[in-house]
């Protein structure tokens, strides 16, 4: 009976409205090639958003994941070239583990030193980016030097179609990777005690401690998984754009946090869902995509994303306040 009041349903409704509206302005929006490209743009932001969702449910915030992603990506690609390594699974595992290690550093500061997550992740973000550029290098690795196995993997399509004019387009298989991770995250959050502990911890950390949850376990889980997803997404991204740029992902935290908040997660912790986040990611990517089609300058796109964050946060805060009453 209360299904229509669920955040996901509201977000889905707004999303449908927006899609219809955009479709009216620009009929090409509903073209399969545009939809496929939209979905493709969801993959990297979406995987990172899953990590940020986890952090936000636990009552924290993470702005370090773009730095972790770029570091894991660049270090892995460098290592692959230096060692003449090929393959997909092993490099992916490397990047994921690297991200996880970075995430654990966040967790140490947040849990053991009881520091505010925003400050911790700002600090680790700056350090990781600085070290990467200062110690590892600043040069981009382009398509000629990139490990071919990664590019081949990222090129995989699940649907391939050709337009009347002969050009081909397709839906990347990476959406399956994204979908799989999202499903996994949903199952963990909903059907495991560690997942429920994240909600409990975000709802009331002291109560979680008294109930017998192990706060250290929860905090390390949250930040380690967020870091791991960032590392994984970072490397996948380099394969998809055929480029490893150590200055990549600057400002991405804004987009991802906007998407998660748009998806109904509470910045105060304790609330948020995978489905909502996926819808939020789709909405954000769609808005940015439409702005590009409308030839709006990238600087103004950032203004739009900022506005989205403010409005979405205001709405969720209002919702949470009303529930308390």
């Amino acid at each position: 009976m209360a299904w229509f009041r669920r955040s996901e349903v509201v977000i889905a409704g707004i999303l449908m409205l927006a899609m219809i509206l955009i479709g009216l302005i620009n009929p090409a929006f509903w073209g399969l090639d545009n939809l496929f490209s939209l979905l493709r743009s969801n993959v990297i932001i979406g995987i990172m958003a899953l990590g940020v969702l986890l952090v936000m449910i636990s009552g924290g915030i993470d702005v370090s994941f773009p730095a972790f992603a770029v570091a894991a990506m660049y270090l892995t690609v460098k290592a692959m070239i230096a060692l003449g390594m090929d393959g997909v699974a092993l490099p992916m595992a490397m990047a994921t583990l690297m991200g996880m290690a970075f995430g654990c550093v966040n967790a140490v500061f947040v849990h053991n030193f009881r520091m505010i997550p925003l400050i911790v992740t700002l600090g680790t973000s700056g350090m990781v980016r600085g070290f990467l550029l200062g110690v590892v290098g600043t040069s981009m690795i382009n398509i000629n030097a990139m490990p071919q196995s990664l590019l081949e993997f990222a090129k995989t399509d699940i649907i391939s179609l050709s337009k009347p004019d002969g050009t081909t387009y397709g839906l990347t298989a990476m959406v399956l990777v994204y979908g799989g991770l999202a499903l996994l995250m949903h199952l963990v959050l909903r059907y495991t005690m560690i997942g429920r502990s994240v909600y409990a911890y975000g709802g009331d950390a002291e109560a979680a401690r008294r109930a017998g949850f192990n706060p250290a376990k929860t905090v390390f889980f949250v930040y380690a998984v967020a870091g791991a997803l960032a590392g994984f997404a970072g490397l996948l991204h380099s394969g998809m754009i055929w480029l490893a740029n150590p200055r990549d992902f600057v400002g991405l935290e804004l987009d991802v946090i906007a998407a998660v908040v748009l998806g109904g997660a509470s910045i105060f912790g304790g609330r948020g869902s995978v489905l909502g986040t996926m819808l939020g990611v789709f909405m954000l990517v769609m808005v940015k995509n439409s702005l590009i089609i409308m030839k709006v300058d990238t600087t103004w796109q950032r203004v739009a994303v900022g506005i989205i964050i403010i409005i979405a946060t205001a709405l969720t805060a209002w919702r949470d306040r009303r529930r308390q009453a």
């Binding site: 909600y199 409990a200 709802g203 979680a208 008294r210 109930a211």
Partner: peptide
Amino acid sequence: IYQDFSLFGNL
């Protein structure tokens, strides 16, 4: 039973 009840309001 603590004064603040130690409940999870979000659950």
